[in-house]
C-alpha cells in the first residue's frame, strides 16, 4: 500500500506553571490510502495527534518527533512558510462544529473561493465555477443559493457539507476529520459519512477519522488506533474490533449500552495504572 504519512515517535508536551503535561506520548503510525480511525476518550490525545501533524499545536505546546514523513518531506522539520503550503493544499482538516469553523461574516461562496485561490492562481470567475461544482459534489441541492448564504443561515448538516467542500477544493491527499459528525443528529451524521466515504474513495485520499464513538469508527473505518493517556494501546482492523484484546478497549466496548442485548447494569471500566506505563503500540504498516 502506498504510504502518505509515516509518523514516528510523536510527542506533544505542555509546560504549565508547575509541571509538564504530556498530551501525546511516543505515538507511531502510518497512513496509506485508507480510512484510519483514531478512537479514545477525552484527554486521550487523539485530537492533539491530529493537530500536531499539521503543526497546529499552539505554544506553550511543544511537538517533537523522530519524523513526520509526508511523501518524502519531513513535516516536523519543514519551515512554517512551506508548511503553510502543505496545510490545506496537501493535508486538510475538518473540525467538529461548523458553527465555529466557518467565518460568520463572510458568505459561503467567499470562503470557498478564498480557500481555492489561496493555493491556485485563478480568476474569481473560475474559482466561483469550481466552488459551485464542489458544492454540488458534496450533494448540496441548490449550490447557487448556498453559495450566497451566510453560515448562520445553514443547518448543522449543511454547514458541515460546506466545511467538507472547502477542505476538499484544493484537492488534498490526506484529510484529517476531527469528530466531524459529533455535533450532528444521527441520521444527518450518516449522510455526511456516506459523502465523506465516497469522496475519499473517488479521489484515492487517505483519511484520518478522529472520534470517541467506537461503534461508528468500527463500522466506518478500515483500521483503528485506540488511544489512552496519550499512547496507542491497541491497533486492529476495524471489522475485528470485537476481538480486541486490550482490557481498556474491552472495557470501553462493554460499557456501551446495546439495544439488542439489554443488561440490568452496564459494566464499568476500571482503569489500571499500568496502562499508562505501557509502551505505545507501533501502528506503522
Amino acid at each position: 500500500m502506498k504510504r502518505f504519512l509515516t509518523v514516528e515517535d510523536l510527542w506533544v508536551r505542555f509546560k504549565t506553571r508547575y509541571d509538564m503535561v504530556e498530551a501525546v506520548r511516543g505515538v507511531s503510525f502510518s497512513l496509506g490510502r485508507e480510512r484510519l480511525g483514531i478512537v479514545g476518550e477525552s484527554g486521550s490525545g487523539k485530537s492533539m495527534t491530529g493537530r500536531a501533524l499539521l503543526g497546529l499545536v499552539r505554544p506553550p505546546g511543544d511537538v517533537s518527533a523522530t519524523r513526520i514523513d509526508f511523501l518524502g518531506q519531513d513535516l516536523h522539520r519543514l519551515p512554517e512558510k512551506k508548511m503553510r503550503h502543505i496545510r490545506g493544499k496537501e493535508i486538510s482538516m475538518v473540525m467538529q462544529d461548523p458553527k465555529y469553523s466557518l467565518n460568520p461574516v463572510l458568505t459561503v461562496g467567499e470562503q470557498i473561493t478564498e480557500a481555492y485561490r489561496l493555493h491556485n492562481r485563478v480568476s474569481q470567475k473560475i474559482a466561483r465555477a469550481k466552488a459551485l461544482e464542489m458544492l454540488e459534489e458534496v450533494q448540496i441541492r441548490d449550490p447557487e443559493r448556498v453559495y450566497k448564504a451566510y453560515p448562520s443561515e445553514l443547518s448543522g448538516g449543511m454547514g458541515q457539507r460546506v466545511m467538507i467542500a472547502m477542505m476538499l477544493i484544493p484537492d488534498p491527499k490526506v484529510l484529517i476529520a476531527d469528530e466531524p459528525t459529533s455535533a450532528l443528529d444521527v441520521t444527518v451524521q450518516l449522510k455526511i459519512l456516506q459523502l465523506l466515504d465516497q469522496l475519499v474513495e473517488k479521489r484515492g485520499m487517505g483519511l484520518i477519522f478522529i472520534s470517541h464513538d467506537l461503534p461508528l469508527v468500527s463500522s466506518f473505518c478500515d483500521r483503528i488506533l485506540i488511544m489512552y493517556g496519550g499512547r496507542i494501546v491497541e491497533t486492529c482492523r476495524a471489522d475485528q474490533l470485537d476481538q480486541a484484546t486490550h482490557p481498556y478497549t474491552r472495557g470501553l466496548l462493554q460499557s456501551l449500552p446495546d439495544i439488542r442485548h439489554p443488561r440490568e447494569r452496564l459494566s464499568v471500566l476500571t482503569r489500571d495504572e499500568s496502562w499508562k506505563q505501557e509502551e505505545s503500540v507501533n501502528a506503522i504498516i
Binding site: E41, S42, R265, S267, L269
Partner: peptide, 14 residues
C-alpha cells in the same frame, strides 16, 4: 460524557 463515564452515571441513576 465519555462512554465509560456514561456507564457509571447510568448505573448510578438505575
Amino acid at each position: 460524557l465519555d462512554v465509560s463515564v456514561q456507564a457509571e452515571i447510568l448505573n448510578l441513576l438505575s
